[in-house]
Amino acid sequence: MNIWLTSIALLFLMGCSQDAVSSQFVEKKEFVTENFATHGGETIAEVRVGWEAYGTLNAAKDNVILITHFFSGNSHAAGRYAETDPFPGYWDAIIGPGKAIDTNKFYVISSDTLVNQEPHNPNVITTGPASINPATGKPYGLDFPVVTIRDFVNVQKMLLESLGIERLHAVVGASMGSLQALEWSVAYPDQVDRMISVIGMGESDPWTIATLQQWANPIMADPNWNNGDYYAAEPPTAGVTQAVMAITLQAQHPLIFNQLNAASSAKEKAPLHNIRSNFAVVDQLKAAAGARATYADANHILYLVRANQLFMAGHGESLEAGLSRVKAATLFLPAANDLLLQPYLAQRAHNILKQQGNTTDYEEIQGPWGHLDGVFTIATKAEKIRLFLQ
């Protein structure tokens, strides 16, 4: 882990109490379903996703909370796989015995999504363009159907049904996970009692669609991408690295980014004398992105970008029409300094639900991280979450 990533991790742990550092151990499990029908009307012969669970499922199977993960994340929401793991799951500060999402009371499930960003991560199980197409014996590439947030939700529903779970006490997610959480409450209103959207939105507006496209463009401009057909050749590593650089940068606020990179400045000598020389901050950002790119797949990133761009809760004619189906109590927790999914996006969904007579609440997370406050500063909303889940 390079210095830049280490700084991120240390600041994260400094923001957690000693009690928040988990001692619970979890294992990755696998769910498989066949002939999955997508929202777009196509069929995927086999879908495999990984999942984890924390706590104990009660006899009535009515104490279930589903956690849905963010764009670059996976199902590892809490705990550790082994004592040697340096860090716990991303929301360990609020998931565990006695915490806001109390595993003494709730059975908490988290699953990997379709087309997870990191299909080469040993702790991820997913199906996507990098998977083998049984019809050809080769990776799908761009023959894989375009998928939506509704498809992510439908795979999760099948997973829960395989466990005999028919109703959710709550569904909770951050960023792309918040889209899934909201879609759950729209698609299956009679099966969701509560929904928490952290750093989320109700639909992608033009600004957000164009912003997300900046993550896709470097990949598609890389000659090695080869229109998605690169699995038997050199992968578009440069494009993936540039994409992850954009994702990493836009997920932060200048307040924290400048603090972490204070050593870099306009006074650096090398960039003055050589146009090919990078500023130190650019090299550090590139190194951090390169480390993440090891597990990532270019086509998977493109498909995730498209799923987010296509999002409108309900996938119907309007956001108002989609949200009119919601019966769950809802809580929106955007980050005040979020420059990626700005608070107005969550505010709009909350306002519509309020106008429609739903039970809904809205409160902003205060912090220096920007979008990442939904992960690193979530503990400041622990009591709010605890009370909402009661």
Score class of each variant (00 low, 15 high):
231 Y>Q: 06
232 A>Y: 10
232 A>L: 08
233 A>N: 15
233 A>C: 09
234 E>F: 12
234 E>L: 11
235 P>F: 06
237 T>E: 15
238 A>M: 11
238 A>Q: 14
238 A>S: 13
240 V>E: 11
241 T>Q: 12
241 T>A: 05
242 Q>N: 12
243 A>T: 08
243 A>H: 04
243 A>N: 12
244 V>Q: 10
245 M>K: 10
247 I>T: 09
247 I>E: 00
248 T>K: 07
249 L>V: 11
250 Q>Y: 11
250 Q>W: 10
250 Q>K: 15
252 Q>E: 09
252 Q>Y: 13
253 H>M: 02
253 H>I: 07
254 P>N: 00
255 L>C: 09
255 L>D: 15
257 F>T: 04
260 L>M: 14
260 L>V: 04
261 N>C: 02
261 N>L: 08
263 A>V: 11
263 A>I: 14
264 S>P: 00
265 S>I: 08
266 A>I: 14
266 A>C: 13
267 K>L: 15
267 K>S: 15
268 E>S: 08
269 K>S: 10
270 A>G: 05
270 A>Y: 05
270 A>M: 00
271 P>Y: 00
271 P>F: 04
272 L>V: 07
272 L>R: 11
273 H>D: 15
274 N>Y: 15
274 N>E: 12
276 R>E: 12
276 R>D: 12
276 R>A: 09
277 S>L: 08
277 S>T: 13
278 N>E: 07
278 N>P: 07
278 N>Y: 11
279 F>C: 07
280 A>F: 13
283 D>K: 08
284 Q>T: 06
284 Q>E: 11
287 A>K: 05
287 A>C: 01
289 A>M: 00
291 A>L: 14
294 T>N: 13
294 T>C: 14
295 Y>F: 15
297 D>S: 09
298 A>Q: 02
298 A>C: 07
298 A>F: 01
300 H>N: 12
301 I>T: 06
303 Y>V: 05
303 Y>K: 03
303 Y>P: 04
303 Y>R: 09
303 Y>A: 08
305 V>F: 12
306 R>P: 03
307 A>Q: 05
307 A>R: 01
308 N>I: 10
308 N>V: 09
310 L>T: 09
311 F>N: 01
311 F>K: 01
311 F>G: 03
313 A>V: 03
314 G>R: 00
314 G>T: 00
315 H>S: 03
315 H>I: 03
316 G>P: 03
316 G>V: 01
316 G>Y: 01
319 L>F: 02
320 E>S: 12
321 A>F: 00
322 G>A: 03
323 L>I: 04
326 V>D: 01
326 V>T: 05
328 A>S: 15
328 A>E: 04
332 F>Y: 13
332 F>V: 10
333 L>E: 03
334 P>D: 02
334 P>L: 02
335 A>N: 00
336 A>L: 13
336 A>R: 11
338 D>L: 09
338 D>V: 11
340 L>N: 01
341 L>P: 02
343 P>M: 00
343 P>L: 01
343 P>S: 02
344 Y>D: 15
346 A>H: 04
347 Q>D: 07
348 R>K: 10
350 H>Q: 14
353 L>T: 00
353 L>V: 07
354 K>M: 12
354 K>R: 14
355 Q>A: 09
355 Q>K: 04
355 Q>S: 07
357 G>V: 04
359 T>P: 05
359 T>L: 15
359 T>E: 13
